[in-house]
Design a protein around this nucleic acid. Structure first.
Lengths: 410, 410
DNA sequence: CGGGTTTCTTGCATCTACCAATCAACCCAC
DNA sequence: GTGGGTTGATTGGTAGATGCAAGAAACCCG
C-alpha cells in the first residue's frame, strides 16, 4: 500500500525479477546455513528447478560453496548437498570513530570479524584521520590476498552529510564543525576504495537487525537508543534504516523531559541527553560521592561511565543508585517514542547496557508510570544483544548490505 | 537497502513484474491526465511497445479511456491520443466518524467527491452505527448503476483493531471501550461489502499525500498533526502509512511537554494533548473571557473551537491570543517529532488550520526556540491543503489505494 | 500527393519462472 | 548385491513479460 513517487520510481524488468529472487535466496542461505536446495525451495516457495539454476549462478560467482552432504531422512533417499555462504567471497572494513577511541575491524562475507584494532583518538582531527586511513590501508593489505574487497563503512557522531562524509555538527566529538572526514580519508585511500558514512546510533540499529540474535529475528520496526556521550537513536522501519529528510532523523535524545531543566546545546531545555548521557551520569555520580566525602578531586577526573558500571556490578550502592536514576530518566524519554512510533522493540546500547539486569526494572517502572499498558505491552525493551560494539557491526552491515539487500524498487 | 524478512517475504514472478509496471503507469495517468502513450513511455523509461500493450489491457478492463486527440507538434506528425482515468470504473465510500458528527462521501475513481452527507452523532453507538450503515447502504444504491464498488473506508478515533474494526480505547468519542464498529456495520451491509478501518489522524496523513496539492508532491516522509478533541498524529514514511507494532503508532499527542503539568488520561502528566487539544483551547478561552466579565455561563456551553477560530479571524483579541497560545504549545510538542523523525513536512489539520495565517508565525517562533536551525530548515510546516476534511479523503484513499498502489513486495 | 515527422502497433528475441519428466544418490529389506 | 521406495538435483519445454526494431497510421505542409 505504498504510494508511488512519480519523481523517483523504478520500472521492473526481468533483471529485477531475477535480482529479487537471488537476494532472497542469498539471505536464506546466510541465515540458515548450511541448507540444501530443496529446503530453500520449500522456504521460498520457488520451484526446485529455479533454485537449482540460481545456485548454479551463485557457485559460478563464488558467492556460495557446497560442503559435504547431510544426513538422509529415515525413509532413505538421496542425501542433501549443503550450501554455505562463501566467507572469502568478499570482505568489509568497519570503522567506528567514537568520542574517545576508534575501532577498526575486518569482516568476512558472513559478517564474522577477522581482525579488531583499537586506537585512541587525538586532538587534531586532520592528522588523526590520516592515521585512521593508514590503519584502513593496512587492513586492506591484510585482506587483499584472501578476499574481494567490498568497502569501508564508517561510523561517525553528529549530524552528517553521508554522501561526502562531512560532520556538520559534532559537539560530542570535540572536533568542531564541518570536518571533512570523507575528503581526508579519500585523499589517502584513493577513489577506488568505496567508503560509506553513517551516524553511529543508526548504524547500531542496523547492526542489531542484521546481526542481533534471536530476540530480533522477525522484528521489522525497532529503535536503537545509544547512550554514550550523548543520547542518539537509530530508527529502523520496515527493515530499512530511516534517515529523514536530510539525514537528520533519530535525535530523540533531544526530547525535552523537563522544560524547566538545564539548557541543552540544541537550544531547548531539559533534553533527555542532558539527564541521561554518560557525561550527565558521571557528573551525578561524582556529586553524590563527593558530598559523602569519599572522593578526591583527582579521582573525579579519572571517573568514567565504564567504571561506574563496573562498580555497580560489584555492589557499590551509590554507583547502582546513579545508574538507576539514569534508567529512570531514560524511561521518561522513551515514552514518546513508544507512543509515537510504537516500535516492536527498543534496544538500549552503550555502557549502561552492560548493567542491564541491574537497571532494566527501574527503566520499565519509570515507563509504566507514563505509558498506557496497551502500548507498553507491544514494545519489547532490552539491551543490545551484540557482543561487539553495535555501531561497528552496523558499519560492516552497511557494506555487506550492498550484496544482501534488494535494490530499492519503487 | 532493506533487510529481507525471512518470515514474510514474497518471491517475484512475471506477474509481479507486470503488476509493478501497470501500477506505475496507472499512477502516471492519474496524476498527469490527459497524457499520451509516448509521454508515458518517456516518463517511465519503458518501451513504447510495452506501454501500448499495458494501455491495451487497461482499455479492455475499463480502467482508462481514450479521449480526443491533442495538438500535434510544429513539425507535424501524428496527433497524440489522450488517455484518462475512467472515473466510473470504480467508486469508493468514505466515512468519518468524528466526535460530534459523521461525514459520508461517495467518490469516483479519480477521488473526486460525488456526494457528501453530514449527520450528527447520537449517544447510543449501537443504534447510531446502524444509522450510518443505512446511509452507506443508500450511497451504495446511488452508486451501483454507475460504478463498480470498491468498498468503504472508515475513519475512527482512538486505538483500533483495524482488521475487525474495534475501538479498543476511545476516550474522545465518549462511547466507552471495545465498540465493535466492524461487527455492527457488517451485520447490516453483509459480507460482500469490503470495509477498511483506520485511525483518523493516519487517514488524514494518507489523504494529504494522495490528494494534497503541490506542496506535497514529491514528499515521502510527512507527519500529519490533527488537532481536534485530542491531538492525533499520522506518520507517512517512504510514501507508506506507518502503523507500528500493533497499529499503535502516531500518538505523538502524548508527548509530555511539562512533567509537572496536569494529568492526562494516558497516565502521564502534561501531554501535548492536555494543552493543545480543542477542548483545552476552548477551556482557556472561556477562562480568559470570563475573568473579564464579558461572558455568561450559558454562552460558555455553546462555545466551541469553530467559533473561536471565526472570532479570531474577525479580529477578536482574546480569541486570537488563545489560538496563539495553542500554537505555541503545539510548537513545543512538534520539536521532538522534528528531531526524531525529521520529516520533510509536518501538516497541521483540524479547526485551528483554518486560522493558519494567524498562528503560523507563533508556532514557528515557538519551534525556533527549541530546535536547531539545521533541523528546522529541512522540515516544512503548513496547514492541510485539502478542501474537504483530510481524514475523509484518507478514508477514500484507503479504498482507492487498492488499485493505485503496488502489492507489497519483500 | 508525397516527403518528413510523430504516434502507435506488432512480430521476434530474450529472459526468467513454472511445470514435469528424468537423472542421481541413498536406505533397506529380501 | 540387488531392486523398490524415497528424496535431492537437473534439464528440456512452455508461458508470460519486457526490449528491440520494423512498420503501419495519422498528420503537416509544400
Amino acid at each position: 500500500m505504498r504510494k508511488i513517487d512519480l519523481n523517483k520510481f523504478k520500472t521492473a524488468d526481468h533483471r529485477i525479477l531475477r535480482d529479487i529472487n537471488e537476494v532472497i535466496v542469498l539471505n536464506i542461505i546466510r541465515e540458515r546455513q548450511p541448507i540444501s536446495r530443496v529446503s530453500i525451495a520449500e522456504t521460498t516457495g520457488l520451484e526446485e528447478g529455479t533454485i537449482s539454476r540460481i545456485i548454479h549462478r551463485f557457485l559460478h560467482q563464488g558467492l556460495v560453496y557446497e560442503s559435504g552432504v547431510g544426513a538422509s531422512t529415515p525413509a532413505g533417499g538421496r542425501k542433501p548437498r549443503f550450501l554455505h555462504i562463501n566467507p572469502t567471497k568478499r570482505c568489509a572494513i568497519g570503522v567506528d570513530i567514537g568520542a574517545l577511541e576508534t575501532l577498526l575491524a575486518l569482516s568476512d562475507f558472513n559478517g564474522h570479524l577477522q581482525q579488531l584494532k583499537r586506537i585512541p583518538n587525538t586532538k587534531n582531527p586532520q592528522q588523526f584521520l590520516l592515521t585512521v586511513a593508514d590503519e584502513i590501508q593496512s587492513l586492506i593489505r591484510v585482506a587483499k590476498p584472501y578476499h574481494e574487497f567490498g568497502g569501508v563503512g564508517v561510523s561517525l557522531i553528529g549530524l552528517l552529510d553521508i554522501e561526502e562524509g562531512v560532520i556538520l555538527e559534532g559537539e560530542n566529538l570535540g572536533w568542531g564543525e564541518n570536518i571533512e572526514v570523507g575528503k581526508i580519508l579519500r585523499s589517502r585511500l584513493g577513489r577506488d576504495v568505496l567508503i560509506y558514512f553513517e551516524n553511529g546510533a543508526r548504524l547500531s540499529a542496523l547492526g542489531e537487525i542484521w546481526f542481533g540474535t534471536t530476540h530480533l529475528s522477525g522484528f521489522r520496526d525497532i529503535v536503537f537508543v545509544d547512550v554514550s556521550e550523548g543520547v542518539g537513536t537509530g530508527v529502523i522501519i520496515n527493515g530499512q534504516l530511516y534517515r529523514g529528510s536530510r539525514n537528520g532523523a533519530g535525535e530523540f535524545g533531544h526530547i525535552s523531559i523537563d522544560p524547566q531543566g538545564p539548557p541543552c546545546s540544541c537550544g531547548n531545555r531539559g533534553c533527555l541527553e542532558v539527564f541521561a548521557s554518560d557525561l550527565a551520569t558521571v557528573e551525578r555520580f561524582i556529586k553524590k560521592t563527593r558530598t559523602r566525602g569519599r572522593s578526591s578531586k583527582s579521582a573525579d577526573s579519572l571517573m568514567d561511565m565504564g567504571r561506574i558500571v563496573e562498580m555497580a556490578r560489584n555492589g557499590h550502592p551509590q554507583a547502582l543508585e546513579t545508574l538507576k536514576e539514569t534508567a529512570s530518566y531514560l524511561g521518561f524519554g522513551l515514552a514518546p517514542i513508544i507512543y509515537g512510533l510504537n516500535p516492536e522493540a527498543i534496544v538500549i546500547g552503550g555502557k549502561i547496557a552492560e548493567a542491564w539486569p541491574l537497571v532494566a526494572g527501574t527503566l520499565k517502572n519509570s515507563l509504566a508510570g507514563r505509558v498506557s499498558p496497551l502500548y507498553l505491552e507491544n514494545t519489547k525493551i532490552f539491551a543490545s544483544t551484540l557482543h561487539v560494539k553495535p555501531c561497528l557491526m552496523g558499519a560492516i552491515a552497511l557494506v555487506l548490505a550492498q550484496d544482501f539487500s534488494v535494490p530499492d524498487i519503487l
